[in-house]
Design a protein around this nucleic acid. Structure first.
Length: 1068
RNA sequence: GGGGCAUUAGCUCAGGUGGUUAGAGCGCAGUCCUGAUAAGACUGAGGUCCCUGGUUCGAGUCCAGGAUGCCCCA
């Protein structure tokens, strides 16, 4: 027995566990890389997960897509190193530990002790590492986990330092302001997630319209024209406390503004106000008139007197600037800008050179500038004082209150303020154009992300705020002199150790806070002491540094780094667009002037069965382990690949994965099991049974061989384009045709008793298909592919690879392709389907033979095909003859239509003329036209010269005929049943019952029997007299006795053609 | 508020470059097959391709606007 038996009853999870054990025993993963050592390198970057939480289904999604491409490339001969990694730093880790320790603020953390706190963080990040590793193994995600990079290691940090010093040397690091949501009571920044927790819809705030007096200037005169009364810019705000920090006003350049004149002076005198035309009704009351009109563009560049002079630089004049966020739906179309207290304010301010002026301390108290009466008050409490002061000075147009949405601290309920803090930046905007052009070198799947989400993001690039006032992260390697402020960036441990006057350093120290904070050295310029700035890096910096830092470059592994510095392929969820995809890209462009990766697959999110986001709070999270236990990893993987375009969000449930098993894995397995069962019965050994040459094989064999070559081509092509779904869909339809057409149509060839060339051809053909499929499937469903390969290939010959994952990817042999045969079989399938439909409509079951099927085919090629597929149709549809007819007019009416694909472009607007002409033709005329088309002759219609390809001919049923048509093909059945046909039908019926009885009797398929048939009616006797040999042959009956069954027989009573018949079988 | 995606059969989803009668799986109804057999095959019903307008001889497909849902960023 050449092959291990394969039961059609299979537990995929059990089978997979065996395969896993085999991989482990034989070290297949490592060998799959080792054996390609001399192949070209295909570089994959693993985006590191954080192991402080358990992996979920969405991680499985990412990991199976990460896995499939490297497996494919490995089989193509590439060496695909896959270094694993762990992301270990960052705010989420800190927040989890904070919650665990019941700490609620940075003050708490510092009281607890940074060293102890960071120790807890470090412990927590590998809490679920076991889960991650076992899940990865179970789903066959092959990645090197023996030597992963870990972002908290000193080596990794040191590489991060090196990158920092490189950027510093290129003058790409600077200190600036960054606006963050800030709680004045907790004295801490909040993450966006925390901010989202604390919004209140019913916050009541002041709503004030403020007048900014325009300074006299040439520009002002030109814009405003002549006018005696003072002119003001009118702005609106809900945060009067920010007004002392105002350094600019923003307008919309495209909008129309007006000059309104009215009695708005302190003593009722006439004043002129400028505001957006669209908002005059909303903002102004009482008598006023419009005296002029100005475009927003003209306003830009005007200057105005600051409302308060105590905080702004001496002699500073406010500037009118352009901004795209100015709304014309509320306010005045002129927006008050305080760069210290708003993110948009700050970005406009940075772009326009507006100073950042703080008037509130970090604890929320108004700064004491000496003499401000409201100094020291809580910032919100100063609103009335400020408003009153402005009113006093005639700068308040109107005051009031508004109820709107405002964020509060989710912990202490204090109103948040958006507060500009000093922060360290990477000047990515200096490379904006290069970031954009480098992006064009990247292959995005789906394509739209590159131009859309990612491209837009790069277009709107702002400098990367690098520093975090936190604890558990890569310390920023910048030391400043406490005397003169002179900076020293540190690019390596060696450099640090070599500093003069070094203190607090030991060679084996942990580079994290707080230890690194104690390392100081002397300032070369002034003799002062240099201390590290307290901030740590944004954790995204770590992940973006991964191509460099995973190798501890440039301190080690320079050769490896140079080989693998640019990824051929990366893959993550779409949420990484502005995360890892960006930080990789930004650092690569800034450091190396090239993209970090050549191809990127961006995956959509996983939703639950109802289309809702999966989350713990909703309780709709599907556990990957449950599915793996029930259906297996191949099923889960195949579902991920086939269910939807990878970039789209997809719904997910255990049921959907179950469908995959039924639809794909079981038919595949059954085909495999079928082959093995009969190959073992016949002792078929592919090595010792000579393979008949292709020319000696029947048409269906040549079809399958050709079809298989086509499949290899399309799967390879799709995978080269990273179109995983396209590749898997192609395999799916092949397996479907293999199972439902090839195997079904050829079953007899496998179970007949002669061991002839035909049988050898069948075995070899199916064997080649199954072994090729196992290789094509290896990247997608590595388990079932392995099982098939090992059983069908490895065990037979020592020189065959012992694992499918060590085998080579199949390549197309064009000499085996035959388009004609593929067209033949497509036609056979289509005509069979039509024939069955006709039988269904006529209510004549396939078991009943019929005399004749008429087939009307339009093209010469199809008519030639028919001759080659005739025998398939006879058998499949159980008819005695298939006849091609030229003239279907007896049972069909003809329809002629213009071929739009040809004529649309050629005739354009004249097309309706032709359509109308054809519609007006009589049946006879249509038949003439159709006949010419069929003979492939050209003709003239409605004045147009038309070739046979310009017209399409098809048909529809006439009353009283049973026929079926699909597209251009039509079949009709002769439904007359003669006595002979009826007897043959009965014989087949009898065979079926006897076969069933054989099975009930538990007989082996090769057992010979005596059959008994007795009962009333002479139909059966007639059938046996005409078709007794046929029945004997089919049922392996030595004798058919028309008597009551003997004692040893298994019997049954069945209805045969109205008659009741007792049948029996007995082994001889 | 900005950007991106999605919306196609009861459900889950496919549908290069615009082209004739819009497909698959599941479910449903019916039938068949019977040496893959607690499997399998086929047929059928089922569609306002989210809405409105535009471009075009022709729009599920291209353009504009809108609706709903999701994601990212404010």
């Amino acid at each position: 027995m050449p092959f291990s038996p394969v039961s059609s009853k299979v537990s995929f999870p059990d089978m997979e566990r065996d395969v896993l054990q085999f991989w482990k025993d034989k070290d297949i993963f490592r060998r799959s890389m080792k054996e390609r050592e001399n192949g070209p390198i295909f570089t994959f970057f693993e985006g590191p997960p954080t192991a402080n939480g358990a992996p979920g289904v969405h991680h499985v999604l990412a990991r199976v897509f990460k896995d499939v491409i490297p497996r494919f490339k490995t089989m193509q001969g590439y060496q695909v190193p896959r270094k694993g990694g762990w992301d270990t730093h960052g705010l989420p880790v800190e927040l989890a530990v904070e919650a665990e320790l019941n700490l609620t603020s940075k003050r708490d953390i510092e009281a607890y002790g940074i060293a102890k706190f960071n120790e807890k963080c470090k412990e927590s990040v590998f809490r679920y590492v076991q889960d991650w590793e076992s899940l990865s193994e179970r789903i066959a995600f092959w990645v090197d986990m023996d030597d992963p990079y870990v972002t908290y290691s000193n080596e990794y940090i040191e590489s991060g330092w090196w990158i920092f010093s490189q950027l510093w040397d290129k003058d790409l690091i600077y200190q600036g302001y960054r606006v963050t949501p800030h709680c004045p009571r907790c004295v801490t920044s909040l993450s966006s997630h925390e901010v989202a927790l604390g919004y209140k819809d019913d916050a009541e705030d002041p709503s004030v319209h403020i007048k900014f007096r325009i300074q006299d200037s040439e520009t002002a005169q030109k814009v405003l024209g002549e006018g005696g009364s003072p002119a003001y810019l009118l702005a609106w705000t809900t945060t009067p406390w920010t007004l002392p920090g105002n350094t600019g006003l923003a307008v919309a350049v495209g909008a129309r503004y007006v000059i309104a004149e009215g009695p708005w002076g302190k003593d009722g005198g006439t004043e002129r106000l400028i505001l957006a035309d669209a908002l005059t009704d909303q903002a102004l009351e009482g008598d006023y008139k419009i005296v002029g009109e100005i475009s927003g563009r003209e306003l830009v560049g005007l200057t105005y007197e600051p409302l308060f002079d105590y905080a702004v630089p001496d002699g500073y004049a406010g500037k009118v600037v352009a901004a795209d966020f100015v709304l014309l739906t509320e306010g005045t179309g002129i927006v008050h800008i305080a760069p210290a207290y708003g993110a948009e304010d700050l970005s406009v301010g940075n772009a326009e050179g507006l100073p950042v002026v703080h008037t509130v301390n970090i604890d929320g108290a108004v700064t004491d500038y000496g003499g401000v009466p409201w100094a020291g008050k809580f910032f919100k409490d100063a609103d009335p004082d400020i408003t009153a002061d402005l009113d006093e000075r005639g700068l308040l147009l109107k005051g009031g209150t508004i109820t709107h949405t405002y964020p509060f601290c989710w912990r202490c309920d204090a109103p948040l303020l958006y507060y500009a803090k000093e922060s360290w930046y990477i000047r990515t905007t200096a490379f904006k154009d290069r970031l954009i052009s480098a992006n064009r070198e990247i292959g995005w799947v789906p394509e739209h992300i590159g131009e859309g989400r990612f491209g837009e993001w790069l277009q709107n690039n702002v400098d990367w705020a690098l520093s975090r006032e936190r604890y558990w992260g890569t310390p920023i390697p910048l030391w400043l002199c406490d005397g003169c402020g002179d900076p020293t960036p540190i690019g390596s441990i060696e450099q640090l150790a070599g500093q003069a006057g070094l203190a607090g350093y030991t060679s084996d120290m942990d580079l994290h806070r707080p230890f690194i904070d104690d390392v100081t050295f002397s300032c070369g310029s002034c003799g002062g002491t240099k201390r590290r700035i307290p901030e740590v890096m944004d954790a995204w910096y770590d992940s973006g540094a991964m191509p460099v830092a995973q190798w501890h470059y440039p301190f080690e592994n320079t050769d490896v780094f140079e080989q693998q510095q640019m990824a051929d392929y990366i893959c993550e969820g779409v949420d990484q667009t502005r995360g890892w995809f960006y930080t990789l890209h930004a650092l690569a462009v800034l450091l190396f002037d090239r993209p970090a990766y050549k191809n990127v697959l961006s995956l959509g999110h996983i939703l639950d069965e109802a289309g809702e986001k999966m989350s713990k709070s909703r309780g709709n999270v599907v556990e990957p382990w449950d599915i793996l236990e029930a259906r297996g990893a191949d099923a889960l993987r195949w579902y991920m690949y086939t269910a939807s375009t990878p970039g789209n969000a997809r719904r997910f449930s255990a049921n959907l994965v179950g469908d995959t098993v039924r639809r794909f894995l079981l038919p595949l397995w059954n085909t495999y099991s079928f082959f093995v069962t009969y190959a073992n019965v016949d002792g078929f050994d592919p090595a010792s049974t000579p393979a008949p040459s292709l020319a000696d094989r029947p048409l269906l064999d040549r079809w399958l061989v050709s079809r298989l070559q086509g499949l290899i081509g399309s799967v390879t092509d799709a995978m080269d384009r990273y179109e995983v779904m396209e590749a898997t869909h192609a395999i799916e339809s092949f397996v479907d045709e293999l199972s439902t057409w090839y195997v079904r149509r050829n079953r007899r060839r496998f179970w007949k008793s002669d061991n002839d060339t035909d049988k050898a051809a069948a075995y070899h053909t199916l064997y080649e298909a199954l072994t090729t499929i196992s290789r094509l499937l290896a990247p997608f469903t590595p388990f079932v592919a392995e099982h098939m390969h090992r059983n069908l290939v490895s065990t037979l010959a020592d020189d065959e690879p012992e694992s499918v994952h060590l085998a080579e990817w199949p390549t197309v042999d064009d000499t085996l392709r035959d388009e004609t045969i593929e067209a033949d079989v497509r036609l056979a399938m289509r005509l069979s389907s039509l024939g069955r439909a006709v039988r269904g409509r006529a209510q004549i079951k396939v078991r009943q033979p019929l005399q004749e099927m008429l087939v009307m085919l339009p093209g010469r090629a199809d008519r030639e095909s028919l001759a080659r597929i005739e025998d398939q149709l006879l058998e499949e549809l159980n008819v005695k003859a298939v006849r091609a007819v030229d003239d279907e007019s007896a049972f069909l009416s003809v329809r002629v239509r213009p071929n739009l694909q040809n004529l649309g472009r050629r005739l354009g607007g004249d097309l309706p003329k032709l359509t109308a002409h054809i519609e007006g033709l009589s049946d006879a005329e249509l038949n003439t036209v159709a006949a010419r088309v069929r003979d492939e002759q050209s003709q003239e219609l409605a004045g147009f010269d038309l070739s046979h390809e310009d017209l399409l001919v098809d048909t529809s049923d006439r009353d009283g005929f049973i026929s079926g048509a699909e597209g251009i093909h039509t079949v009709a059945l002769n439904t007359e049943i003669t006595t002979q046909l009826e007897r043959e039908g009965l014989a087949r019926e009898l065979v079926r019952h006897l076969q069933e009885l054989r099975r009930t009797a538990g007989l082996d398929v090769s057992d010979r029997i005596t059959a008994y048939v007795s009962g009333d009616g002479d139909g059966v006797a007639g059938a046996l007299s005409d078709f007794g040999d046929y029945v004997r042959q089919e049922t392996l009956s030595v004798d058919i006795l028309q008597t009551a069954p003997g004692d040893g027989a298994t019997t049954n009573t069945v209805k045969l053609d109205e008659a009741t018949v007792t049948i029996g079988v007995e082994r001889v």
